[in-house]
C-alpha cells in the first residue's frame, strides 16, 4: 500500500510518500522558521497562510520524486491534531479533498502518534511494546505503547514542556528561536561544574515533570551575574546554558529509567524535537545500557515535524482498515489516549 502523508499542524509544511513494501519513497519539508523567528515564536495566522502557499508545490515535488501519481497512491493521511487549528485545516482540507478526487481512502492522524512511530522509518526499528518519551515544544510525556493506537500515559509535564523550557531559556540568553539547538550549541562551550541547577520532581515518586522552576532558576542565575549591558559575560552565558541543559537531560533520563523499571519494559523510544538533542541521546544510551534497555530514535530530520511520520502512521491505520468519512478533521486538543485502537 502506498500512502501520501501531509503535515501542517504548526510551522512546517511536510509531505511524503510511504510504501508498505518499499519503505519511504520521498519526503519534502518547508520550514517557516525564518517567518516566525522575528517574533520569538509561531504566529498562527502567518503559519496558516504559508501552508496554503507551499502545499501544492510540495505535493508536486514529492509525487514526482517518488514516481507516484493518482494511479498508484492508495490512500492519503493528514495530521488531524493536535496543533494550531487554522494550520491543521489547511492540510486537512487539501488532504481530504484530494483523496475524494482520487477516490482513495483518507485518514486523520494524531500528530504525536506520528512522532512516536517515526523511529519505525529507520533500518533498525523498535518492536512493540515499548515506553516512549514524547518530548517537544508542546509535549513532555512518558507513554506506554502496547501497539499502534494503544497508549497509556505514564507521566507528563504539569507545566512547561521541555522544548518550551529550552525556548524560554534561549530567549533569556539572548539566543534565536527555536531555542533548543541554540542552547545546546552554546552549552558545548560551557563548564558543567560551575553551576548546578535543580532536577525538578526527581526526589519524589511518579513520572510527572515540571520545567517552569528551571526557567526561574535560569533567570535568577542570569540576574546574579549581570554585567553592564544587562547580560552576563559570554563564558558565564555558556556555563548557564550548560547547567540548564544538564538539568533538563538529567531529569528526563531519571524519569525514563524509572518508567522502564515500573513497566518492566526494555525498549525506550524517544521522539519529538528535543529527541534530536545529542546530550539526551548519549546519556540515555549510557544509563539505560546499565539496566539492559535499548534506546531508539528517528534520524534528526524526522525528530521535528515532517510528513514522513504521518505517511507511515497513516499507512498502518489504512492497512488495518480505518477509513474516515468526508469531514475534514481538525482537532486542536486531542489526548493521545482518545485515539481509535486498531484490531490486530
Amino acid at each position: 500500500m502506498r500512502v501520501l502523508g501531509i503535515e501542517t499542524s504548526c510551522d512546517e509544511t511536510g509531505v511524503a510518500v510511504y510504501d508498505s513494501d518499499r519503505g519511504l519513497l520521498a519526503h519534502a519539508l518547508y520550514s517557516q522558521m525564518a517567518v516566525h523567528s522575528e517574533y520569538g515564536g509561531v504566529v498562527p495566522e502567518l503559519a496558516s497562510r504559508d501552508h496554503v502557499r507551499k502545499i501544492l508545490p510540495l505535493l508536486t515535488r514529492v509525487l514526482h520524486e517518488s514516481g507516484s501519481s493518482r494511479q498508484n497512491i492508495d490512500g492519503i493521511a493528514y495530521t488531524a491534531g493536535p496543533g494550531l487549528v487554522g494550520a491543521l485545516m489547511v492540510g486537512g482540507a487539501v488532504g481530504r479533498s484530494l483523496a475524494y478526487a482520487w477516490q482513495v481512502p483518507a485518514v486523520g492522524i494524531h500528530h504525536m502518534e506520528g512522532h512516536l512511530l517515526a523511529p519505525m522509518l529507520e533500518d533498525n526499528p523498535p518492536a512493540f511494546p515499548f515506553v516512549a518519551l514524547l518530548v517537544s515544544g508542546g509535549h513532555t510525556q512518558l507513554v506506554e505503547v502496547e501497539t499502534i493506537g494503544r497508549y497509556k500515559i505514564l507521566g507528563e509535564s504539569v507545566d512547561d514542556a521541555a522544548g518550551e523550557a529550552f525556548d524560554k531559556a534561549a530567549k533569556m540568553l539572548d539566543l534565536d528561536y527555536p531555542g533548543g539547538p541554540q542552547v545546546a550549541m552554546l552549552a558545548e562551550r560551557g563548564d558543567p561544574s560551575r553551576f548546578r541547577f535543580p532536577r525538578p520532581m526527581t526526589d519524589r515518586p511518579g513520572l510527572d515533570f515540571s520545567f517552569s522552576g528551571l526557567k526561574t532558576f535560569t533567570l535568577n542565575t542570569i540576574a546574579a551575574h549581570r554585567g553592564e549591558d544587562g547580560l552576563p559575560d559570554n563564558q558565564t552565558m555558556a556555563d548557564i546554558a550548560c547547567a540548564f541543559q544538564e538539568a533538563v537531560v538529567d531529569t528526563l533520563v531519571i524519569k525514563c529509567r524509572r518508567a522502564l523499571e515500573l513497566t518492566g519494559l526494555k525498549t525506550l523510544v524517544i521522539a519529538g524535537g528535543v529527541s534530536a538533542n545529542s546530550l539526551l541521546r548519549q546519556r540515555l544510551e549510557e544509563k539505560l545500557a546499565k539496566i539492559g534497555a535499548g534506546v531508539f530514535y528517528a534520524r534528526h530530520e524526522f525528530c521535528t515535524d515532517n510528513g514522513a511520520m504521518i505517511a507511515y502512521a497513516g499507512c498502518q491505520r489504512l492497512l488495518a482498515g480505518q477509513r474516515d468519512d468526508l469531514a475534514v478533521r481538525a482537532i486542536p486538543r486531542w489526548p493521545l489516549t482518545e485515539l481509535e485502537t486498531m484490531e490486530a
Binding site: R70, G86, A99, Y100
Partner: peptide, 19 residues
C-alpha cells in the same frame, strides 16, 4: 473569514489539483 476562506480554498486545491 481567514479560516473560512482557507477551508474553501483548501478543498478547491485538493479537488482541482487532484482532477
Amino acid at each position: 473569514s481567514f479560516t473560512g476562506l482557507r477551508i474553501g480554498f483548501g478543498v478547491v486545491q485538493g479537488l482541482a489539483y487532484g482532477a
